[in-house]
């Protein structure tokens, strides 16, 4: 057991727990943040993605110990922002959401990408989404959504 302090969706949290728990389990089980999903549990699919210090990470492959003093934003926290609104509207407009299981992760990946590179070209978008598996869409409509978001969110990133 150890005390782990970190910022979660804007609030400081301190947990006294086993640092060898996966961040994903802590988010889902301790904070009831079920937006991050478990698709594979081995870092491959991105359904569990969250932002750690503004960058995308797969919460199933991050031990809680590594979250010490970091800032975590889950889809629940991110969904309160203007950037989210733009991304969500673009996903809707492009038709990038089917079963939705990959969607929170895709949106986190989009944010992480646009935060670093507000005007990505198609290839850069593909790289940005390359760790997020989607079995429903075939990706084109998601790529389209990211393009739309980059345009519509001009100035936000």
């Amino acid at each position: 057991m150890a005390k782990i302090k970190f910022k979660l969706n804007g609030e400081i949290k301190e947990l006294d727990t086993d640092p060898s728990r996966r961040l994903l389990d802590v988010l889902r089980d301790d904070f009831n943040l079920t937006g991050p999903k478990e698709g594979c549990g081995e870092g491959e699919c991105g359904a569990c993605a969250v932002l750690m210090n503004k960058e995308i990470v797969n919460s199933c492959s991050v031990p809680l110990a590594n979250v010490l003093n970091k800032e975590i934003i889950t889809i629940e926290g991110f969904s309160k922002t203007k950037r989210y609104q733009v991304i969500k509207d673009s996903f809707a407009k492009a038709g990038g959401v089917q079963c939705g299981f990959c969607t929170p992760g895709m949106i986190i990946a989009t944010e992480s990408l646009l935060n670093k590179n507000p005007h990505p070209n198609e290839f850069e978008i593909k790289i940005g989404l390359s760790g997020n598996l989607c079995r429903c869409t075939g990706y084109n409509l998601i790529i389209e959504a990211v393009k739309l978001a980059a345009e519509a969110g001009e100035g936000l990133w």
């Binding site: 889902r28 943040l33 079920t34 937006g35 991050p36 999903k37 478990e38 889950t74 889809i75 629940e76 969904s79 989210y84 991304i87 969500k88 996903f91 809707a92 407009k93 038709g95 959401v97 079963c99 939705g100 299981f101 969607t103 929170p104 949106i107």
Partner: peptide, 18 residues
Amino acid sequence: NKVDNEDKCSGKAKYVAD
């Protein structure tokens, strides 16, 4: 617009494990 976009994007949609 698909009717479930909002819930699915925001992470509110509940799958069985949720």
